[in-house]
Amino acid sequence: MKRLPDEWEGSFVETVVPASQSQWRLDRYLSETDLPVTRSRIQRWIRSGAVSVNSVVVEKCGHGVSEGDVVAVTIPETPPSTAEPEPIPLDIVYEDEALLVVNKAAGMVVHPACGHAHSTLVNALLHHCGSLEQFDDPVRPGIVHRLDKDTSGLMIVAKREDAHAFLSRQLAERRIKRGYTGLAWGRFAEPSGTIDAPVGRHPRFRQRMAVVEENRGRRAVTHYRVSESMEDGSLLALALETGRTHQIRVHLAHLGHPVIGDPVYGGRHKRLAGTAPRRRPKLKKMLDVLRRQALHASELEFIHPFSGRPHSFKATLPDDMKQAVVMLSDSTCTTGP
């Protein structure tokens, strides 16, 4: 396979279809441009949502282009093939010969990926316990489930292949219980509820997820309970029945209550602009403290792969979320909506 030159990776290429190539297939048209890659790789890019025609993402290789069409390609970066040990501090809640439970800090990426080759949780784990190097996956050794970069909280990491297989099976069978604490904008009409709405790639903005039609996404179920209701926001206890990418963030935004601090799903400056002017300075100070989405994986329960006994763990809110709760609270706050 032809290797893409390093200087091309992560770049954005835009071309205009000439009259001589009108009605060509999209993949054929791009293969005749200056992109130094094979047609098969271009087809993979198209199917992954990296190509747009006139600002609309097109995922069909056989899409016909017309004269004057603007075809844009966001060239994917090549992900790292290995991870190296790095001496990064870890907050280890529990550890034995089979697994670890880690309280991941906000801002830490779980495993090496495009744009994040170093300083990830996996790099830290490889330094802490070298036995992870025996896993077949050199980039995600022992990882059972993931958290977004700016979501903090509890994660299970397997130290052995048999433990990883057991825990992954539990996760697939929805027997691992994962509880979250979050802050969302606004007051909820009901004290608790269930959001059952399919989640898939956003039809136009491919780096985001969205609630989509059933045939374009996967079933996603989130349960929530209002722990405290304040004038501008609500403290929530959340539980995942499924584990889709950005699920809680997408579901709460879909309800009109985005996670506070979330810049991707309308929970930061966009929402701040819609608040009462008298409250805005205080809320802006809160967002200055809370530099990420206010979401924390606070509870975890699973069956141990060797003992067969249930294990449960809780992690208190990190300081930035504690401060945000205090700044949201005032004399009008109540319990429940």
Rank of each mutant, 00 (worst) to 15 (best):
M1I: 05
R3F: 10
R3A: 12
L4N: 00
D6C: 03
E7W: 08
W8V: 02
G10S: 02
E14I: 11
V16H: 05
P18S: 09
A19S: 13
S20V: 12
S22G: 11
W24P: 04
D27T: 06
R28F: 09
V37R: 01
T38Y: 03
T38M: 07
R47F: 07
A50F: 09
V53A: 11
V53L: 10
V58C: 06
K60M: 10
C61Y: 01
S66W: 13
E67W: 10
G68L: 11
D69Q: 09
V70R: 15
V70G: 02
P76A: 01
E77W: 01
L90Q: 01
D91F: 10
I92H: 06
Y94L: 06
E97H: 13
A98K: 00
A98C: 12
V101Y: 05
V110H: 02
P112C: 08
A117V: 03
T120H: 03
A124L: 10
L126A: 11
L126I: 11
L126T: 09
G130L: 07
E133W: 03
Q134R: 12
V139F: 06
G142W: 02
I143N: 00
V144R: 04
H145Q: 01
H145A: 02
R146K: 01
D148N: 06
T151C: 07
V157S: 04
A158K: 09
R169E: 14
E173R: 11
Y180N: 00
T181C: 11
A184M: 04
W185L: 08
R187Y: 07
E190T: 14
I195W: 04
P198E: 06
V199Y: 04
H202V: 05
H202T: 03
P203R: 06
F205N: 12
R206D: 01
R216Q: 14
R219L: 13
R219N: 14
T222E: 03
Y224T: 01
S229G: 15
M230S: 10
M230G: 09
D232L: 15
S234G: 05
L240H: 06
H246N: 10
H257T: 09
P258N: 05
V259N: 00
V259F: 00
I260K: 07
D262K: 09
D262E: 08
P263Y: 03
G266P: 10
R268Y: 08
H269M: 15
H269I: 12
H269L: 15
T275L: 14
T275C: 13
R278I: 13
R280L: 08
P281L: 04
R291Y: 07
Q293A: 06
H296E: 05
E301T: 14
P305I: 04
R309E: 15
H311V: 10
S312L: 13
S312P: 05
P318V: 04
D320K: 04
D320R: 01
K322R: 15
Q323K: 14
A324G: 05
S329T: 13
S329E: 07
D330V: 07
T332N: 14
T335L: 15
